[in-house]
Simulated scan of single mutants.
Amino acid sequence: MRVCSFLVASFLASAPLAAQACGTALVLTIDVSNSIDTAEYRLQTDGLADALQDPEIVEVMVQGEATLAVVQWSGVDKQSLSIPWTQIRTTLDAARLSRQARQMQRAFVLSDTAPAEAIYFSLSLFDAVAHCNRHVIDISGDGTPNAGADTRAARNAAQRAGVTINGIAIESMGLAITNFYRGAVITRDGFVMTARTHREYPETIRAKILRELSRIFG
């Protein structure tokens, strides 16, 4: 099943982008597993869209010549490249990407939670942006795995490939998801941020993208 995911990802990613300056290639992933209801899905997509039109983030994306893609994920064979690689050279590019995120239709419903497959799928997309200086995967979710491969093995594969994984843990109570992300999802050079319920996700994703692209917090 993992091989199938790689083949699908390679097909959807299409041909490599023309070689040009690129600071960070960032895959933003959205959890659409069974635990995410319609309102929570909309909080994620609207939160992402709002972040992508935030003036401070737009400035960082343009100055850093960032390239972004958006992936929806849930079960073992359910990963979708919803927005292909898009380089942000101007404010118009950022506005277009924000609109695409806001209008994005949900890819899957009633499916399991398999973050390892989301990582493997995202890793396969970087062949198209090999010229970028940094490769980063942003994994967000509100649950621990109930399907799929070992998440630590996927995280280790990312580390070997020189890819950073950061995370947003969406909690309902306590820090169980945060602790799982810290121990099994993020890479040694990565970080995890906590959203206390889905309603905190919009502000958290804004802070997270800013940190990923500017590294102003070290």
Rank of each mutant, 00 (worst) to 15 (best):
T86K: 14
K78M: 10
G148L: 14
V3H: 13
L97G: 05
T91E: 09
I57A: 13
T91V: 10
L7R: 15
T45S: 07
E65H: 11
S98K: 12
A153R: 11
H135W: 00
V109Q: 13
I36K: 02
V136C: 01
A19C: 03
R106E: 07
T194F: 14
P84D: 00
A158S: 10
G75A: 15
G23H: 06
C22V: 00
S35Q: 14
Q20T: 11
V3P: 00
S80R: 09
V185S: 06
Q100V: 02
I168L: 08
G162L: 11
I168Q: 09
A118R: 04
G218L: 11
S122R: 10
G141W: 05
Q63M: 03
A95K: 08
G47M: 00
I83H: 02
D142S: 04
A169V: 04
S140P: 13
D142W: 03
P145V: 05
S98C: 09
R134I: 01
F11E: 11
L26I: 01
C22E: 10
L26V: 10
R152G: 14
V60H: 10
W85I: 06
N166Y: 12
A39V: 15
S214E: 05
E212P: 00
V129W: 01
V136H: 01
D127Y: 14
N34W: 14
S74D: 12
R182N: 07
G174K: 00
Y41W: 15
I36H: 09
L110G: 06
S74M: 13
S35P: 13
A176N: 14
N179C: 03
V32P: 02
D93W: 02
Y201I: 07
T178I: 01
Q103N: 15
A39S: 15
M193N: 13
L125M: 11
I170C: 00
K208F: 06
L175M: 05
G141C: 03
Y181T: 01
F11K: 12
T113Q: 12
I83Q: 06
F6C: 11
R182D: 04
G141S: 02
S98Q: 08
A66S: 10
L12A: 07
R188G: 07
I88V: 14
Q100C: 04
L210G: 06
F191L: 10
P145N: 06
D127N: 15
A95G: 05
S10N: 14
D142F: 13
I177M: 08
R134L: 08
A95D: 03
A153V: 14
P84K: 05
G218Q: 13
S82A: 15
T24I: 10
E56P: 01
M104D: 07
Q105C: 00
D50W: 12
D150S: 12
V3M: 08
L123Y: 09
P145R: 01
W73P: 06
L97P: 02
V192L: 07
D54Y: 06
D127M: 03
Q159F: 03
W85T: 01
S14H: 13
R188E: 06
Q63V: 04
R196P: 09
A51Y: 03
